[in-house]
Amino acid sequence: MDNVRELVRRFILDNFLPGEDASNLTDSTELKESGILDSMSTLKLVTFLESQYQVEFEADDLDAGNLSTVASIAALVTAKQRG
């Protein structure tokens, strides 16, 4: 789970927060409320996670609660991997 968490964090920093101080993105940073994740970046993140971990997301998985922080995203991916 830690690996997933780090990968998600890295992906967000590289793709949605270029130039941002990495320490500003913690596991509990509110991704949506702080404007980091919007509809398009969510789709990009989902596409990345699907290809990286061979899992498939559904519309209901994208509820704000599941994607609110790096930690919750990692938890969702881990749960998906477990089936």
């Binding site: 793709n15 927060l17 270029p18 130039g19 509809s39 398009m40 990009k44």
Partner: peptide, 15 residues
């Protein structure tokens, strides 16, 4: 706008 964002590799660097 959405298609443009989708096509962009990364968000632009901002200060």
């Amino acid at each position: 706008g959405a298609l443009k964002e989708l096509g962009a590799a990364k968000a632009p660097k901002r200060s």
